[in-house]
Design a protein around this nucleic acid. Structure first.
Lengths: 140, 140
DNA sequence: TAAATTAGTTTGTGTCACGTACTAAATCAA
DNA sequence: TTGATTTAGTACGTGACACAAACTAATTTA
């Protein structure tokens, strides 16, 4: 059966995805909110850019940002360049919560990897890097 | 800041998860519906067992199965053992659609892996197998 | 400068997940 | 055996989420 590697990767993807979901939930974050905060960690995009970054319809982003803003995790700022545009940024609280969730998630994944012998960890990192690079190159 | 192994694995998990989501969507299946049909491929559980398999509240499963049944993908059957229980099973159409979606997803993941040199593919398969085995053993 | 485009919100629809309350069947206790 | 409790499943109400279509306001373009 050739599908072994497919099943394995799918299982691994679900394990990692589930880990993130669980850790995010501990901070009362849904996956949608988590993705929003994650994207805003090193950016201050417009609503439109945000929609592209998250692969969502712009009307979906309005609601997502509304709820995050209501919780004090993000702010809407006017754009200096374009009077129509709105910039979205993390608040200090948003910054703090996403940092904590990311650290928790990181610890979980590192603990998972600690189950492997060191040589496997090193090899896995290299292979995954190559795979993602090839995937990115292929997506052009 | 370099890309860490945690980031790499998270990215890979999202790529694979997104691939499944996209392929499922081509068959008008949400992730929730896809998980439902996937679980029913080799089982005919009660609503209660289904809730445990999917880690959902039983009231959530009622709605999920309602919508799948309305689309003709699953059926509710009476249980011979327990007059309260309801068995859920795939219809022929449900079977067909989940098989097609699984085949499409499999093809995508194999195409992704084809971007790697053969030695990497082999190594990846082995490492992922070991990782999942260790994870399962750890979960006892 | 009038027309077309773009950014964002509003509104309406559907899915999804949860908690609570409910009905009916099965099990337990006395 | 029968009355009380537990269990399986559904109904209902709420809220997050995602989309499409219609709308307003600002910016470009012709």
């Amino acid at each position: 059966m050739q599908t072994t590697i497919v099943d394995g990767l799918a299982q691994l993807a679900f394990v990692i995805h589930g880990t993130l979901e669980r850790r995010a939930a501990e901070h009362d974050l849904s996956m949608a909110q988590t993705r929003l905060l994650g994207v805003l960690r090193d950016r201050q995009p417009t609503m439109n850019q945000l929609a592209k970054l998250l692969s969502l319809d712009k009307s979906s982003v309005t609601g997502l940002v509304d709820r995050a803003e209501r919780r004090g995790l993000v702010t809407r700022l006017p754009s200096a360049d374009d009077g129509r545009a709105v910039l979205v940024a993390l608040t200090d609280e948003g910054q703090a919560i996403v940092s904590r969730a990311a650290a928790d998630f990181s610890a979980d994944v590192l603990a998972l990897l600690d189950l492997l012998p060191r040589a496997d960890r090193v090899a896995l990192q290299e292979i995954v890097s190559r795979l993602l690079a090839a995937y990115a190159a292929d997506r052009d």
